[in-house]
């Protein structure tokens, strides 16, 4: 098994185009798979020296978060936390302090787990990612990346360079919650990311709710616009949100939760994240 440290995106793409090549960013998933012999790479491509992949930038266009920036560093970014608190909370939940010191958004997305904490929050924040490959860069919405558990749209030689988030317009709030059995260190049984924007009358102008761990990939709830746009949330619309969330679930039963449990919790977390996001939006 070789180990290479390319210093340009092109070199990285070429290295990753080799048979059996695996990208290494924070390594919190890859090293576990190596240890348990789940994968046997021919070459490990450490992409952390590629330009821009380790940087966080705030411009008038919005936010850039390099794909290999450790979560601990992202959480320390105060102005990002002010703009997208739900997203920062989501990535602060991944693993322990130690895991945070290494884990990355790029890895969390490309590991393609339905339970990835940052992904529903990134989707709710209308995030996109820049995919680098031998033929250049392309931009894709986050929700288009994962196609099934463990599988992404990335082609041979491609890797995620970083993430773009819009600068939130005033009156925007987001939130992420997950359900785990303990207080820390677990994989989400259900995760929910929600963002809403409101006008000066506190009426909702946009809403997005993304759920994780309740289907093979993260899903965006449909049909929320009619319920919420132009209105304040009320008991009736929130109850409908709960049933939309529940009926969108296509979960599996596994060691972490039953179908019934996941379905029920999806509704609870959709409701709770909307409540938090709405409160943040009217105070933003």
């Amino acid at each position: 098994m070789d180990y290479v440290t390319p210093t340009t995106a092109m070199e990285a793409s070429k290295a990753l185009a080799q048979d059996g090549a695996f990208a290494l960013a924070g390594g919190t998933d890859l090293l576990v798979k190596l240890k348990t012999k789940f994968v046997s790479p021919s070459v490990i491509v450490d992409i952390k020296q590629v330009p821009k992949i380790m940087s966080i930038e705030n411009s008038t266009d919005g936010w850039w978060i390099g794909a290999a920036v450790p979560c601990a560093e992202i959480s320390e970014h105060e102005s990002l936390r002010q703009d997208w608190p739900g997203l920062v909370e989501s990535l602060s939940l991944i693993g322990s302090t130690q895991i945070q010191g290494r884990a990355t958004l790029g890895g969390n997305l490309c590991n393609a787990s339905p339970a990835a904490d940052s992904v529903p929050a990134l989707i709710a924040a209308y995030g996109t990612c820049i995919i680098s490959g031998q033929s250049g860069d392309r931009e894709e919405p986050i929700e288009n990346i994962v196609t099934s558990p463990g599988v992404t749209v990335l082609e041979k030689g491609e890797f995620i360079l970083g993430f773009k988030l819009p600068k939130p317009e005033s009156g925007t709030g987001d939130a992420y919650l997950r359900l785990i059995p303990r207080s820390e260190m677990d994989i989400a049984i259900v995760g929910a990311g929600t963002s809403v924007s409101v006008d000066k009358d506190k009426k909702i102008t946009s809403i997005r709710v993304a759920l994780g761990a309740i289907a093979p990939t993260q899903i965006i709830l449909d049909g929320l616009e009619d319920l919420f746009i132009g209105k304040e949330p009320n008991e009736n619309s929130i109850n409908k949100l709960i049933s939309i969330a529940e009926s969108a679930c296509r979960p599996i039963k596994d060691k972490r939760g039953t179908v019934e449990y996941r379905t029920k919790i999806a509704g609870v977390l959709a409701k709770r994240t909307l409540t938090i996001a709405y409160k943040r939006a009217i105070n933003h």
């Binding site: 090293l31 490990i44 450490d46 130690q98 895991i99 290494r102």
Partner: peptide, 13 residues
């Protein structure tokens, strides 16, 4: 200066 698990870092890194 970052807290990490040494088991999740390659020696080469």
């Amino acid at each position: 200066d970052r807290l990490v698990c040494a088991c999740l870092v390659l020696g080469a890194e």
